[in-house]
């Protein structure tokens, strides 16, 4: 499901859930690009475990990337004005996670939608949550 204009958005709608790529290859590339590489915590399970972590992690801001990517697919003409993400618990690399969002507010005059955002692990435990304000064309 995609939306093109503010008129397409329905209060309470859930954006189609999505399983992002949390593979070590992806987290390694991401960590390298943002300058987080070297410690192993995003690149290597055994190095991460040696640091007391349960395994290699998905960088917190990569979770933000998963959420913005989902919003952009849902609203191809939308512009994210603001996104706020709370890192509640680690997102483990090589583990299945689901990214979801629900429409919680619509301002038809301003063309703005507020979304509640969540990243869940396979046990349906919240790892990341947040909100986004997205601007959509009015017509």
């Amino acid at each position: 499901m995609t939306v093109q204009t503010i008129g397409d958005v329905v209060f309470g709608d859930e954006i189609t859930p999505w399983q992002p790529d949390t593979s070590l290859q992806a987290t390694r590339s991401f960590a390298h690009a943002v300058g987080y590489s070297g410690s192993g915590r995003f690149e290597d399970h055994s190095k991460a475990r040696a640091q007391g972590l349960p395994g290699a992690l998905v960088p917190g801001i990569m979770g933000m990337g998963f959420l913005t990517s989902m919003i952009h697919r849902w609203a191809p003409r939308g512009k994210i004005k603001h996104i706020d993400t709370v890192f509640r618990a680690p997102v483990l690399a090589d583990h299945e996670h689901t990214v979801t969002a629900v429409v919680t507010d619509i301002d038809e005059e301003l063309g703005e939608v507020v979304l509640d955002l969540t990243i869940l692990n396979a046990q349906e435990e919240t790892r990341v949550f947040g909100t986004a304000t997205v601007h959509l064309p009015i017509a």
Partner: peptide, 10 residues
């Protein structure tokens, strides 16, 4: 790279 590895398509 950051966008692609996050699943961005735009």
């Amino acid at each position: 790279t950051v966008a692609k590895t996050s699943g961005e398509t735009r």
